[in-house]
């Protein structure tokens, strides 16, 4: 299983971007994950909290958007969204095609940041609770 090392890379890239933007605390990380990336969604979610510990991402939520594989058929010009990655076939003519247009993604799309207002609200409600 290599999802822990993927999670560490993810945290490194995201926290660097957050720190560069002087972003404070991160609430959510949005990841695009192609079905051909070779990364297991559940295993990555499991490893994320461990990797995020002690960083600006600690306590944040990882949102994973899974992207199906799309192949292009040269013969009939049609793009097909595959319902299985066990068969790379054109949905129109049935020919096998290796021309992949989507499905290898493993990239951070965007971060949702906790704004100062939101942070203050949390602080206020904490005070009120006391």
């Amino acid at each position: 299983m290599h999802e822990l090392s993927i999670a560490h890379s993810l945290v490194e890239v995201a926290s660097k971007a957050a720190l560069n933007a002087d972003a404070g605390h991160v609430a959510r990380v949005h990841l695009r994950l192609g079905l051909l990336a070779g990364v297991e969604k559940d295993a990555l979610l499991f490893c994320y909290d461990i990797a995020a510990e002690g960083t600006v991402l600690e306590g944040s939520t990882l949102e994973i958007e899974e992207l199906p594989v799309i192949v292009h058929c040269a013969a009939c010009g049609v793009d097909t969204t595959l319902d299985t990655i066990q068969r790379f076939a054109c949905g129109n003519c049935g020919a096998l095609t290796g021309d992949i247009r989507q499905g290898k993604e493993l990239s951070i799309d965007y971060l949702e940041l906790e704004t100062e207002d939101a942070a203050e609200n949390i602080a206020d409600s904490a005070e009120r609770a006391e």
Partner: peptide, 17 residues
């Protein structure tokens, strides 16, 4: 209010790549 969004669009494995 809307959360602040920070666009990144960077590969997780960019360092390895």
């Amino acid at each position: 209010m809307q959360p602040r969004i920070l666009q990144i669009q960077q590969s997780v494995l960019s360092k390895n790549d």
